[in-house]
Amino acid sequence: MSDSLPSEPRPSGLGATVLLGGALALLGLLTSLPYFLGPIAGAVAVVAAARLRTRPGGRAGPLALGLVLGVLGTLSALAPPVASAELIAGFAALGVLLWIASDPSRGAGALRQAVPIVAIAGLAFAVALALAVGLPTVPYGLGIAGGLAAIAVLLVGFALVAARSGSDRGAATA
């Protein structure tokens, strides 16, 4: 039946998987776990998650995402409170977003289209990190406040866009 239709290229997700695995492994290196348990846990979790989400049926996708997020949370909780760990943890979170966008069940080009979204999330992270560690005299509390402020700005923007899309929808269905 589907022979007459050309097979649409699907993203392999390999690049995002490697990126996320590298970030988690680096984060694991910074933890105080013995026998390189940190990087091993990060790498194994990413490989296992990548295999889970490529299983037929696509029902293991949420489980794969939960596995990655669980390892990310565990490693970030165990990492020392230094600037490099904060930087790597943020990059790992952005890697998670890219990894979601490169899901093989999605059409080709989803990763490219997801770049602006990940960039906005990265901007919020960058603002918070710059406020927290970029200025030597600024305490961490200011970073937290900066991050929350960035989220508030995004929320306001979202409210404006939602109102605009509502008016567009009314025009489209008129």
Binding site: L69, L72, G73, S76, A77, A79, P80, P81, A85, E86, L87, A89, G90, A92, A93, L94, V96, L97, Q113, P116, I117, V118, I120, A121, G122, A124, F125, A128, L129, A132, Y140, G143, I144, G147, A150, I151, L154, L155, G157, F158, V161, A162, S165, D168, R169, A172
Partner: peptide
């Protein structure tokens, strides 16, 4: 420890950014 906070910030911002910056799709 602030490290989980920085890991969680992109995760909190992504859905909002997705609704804000993503394409709207055809009418």
């Amino acid at each position: 420890t602030p490290v989980p906070l920085f890991a969680g910030l992109p995760l909190l911002a992504a859905p909002v950014a997705s609704a804000l910056a993503g394409a709207r799709g055809p009418g």
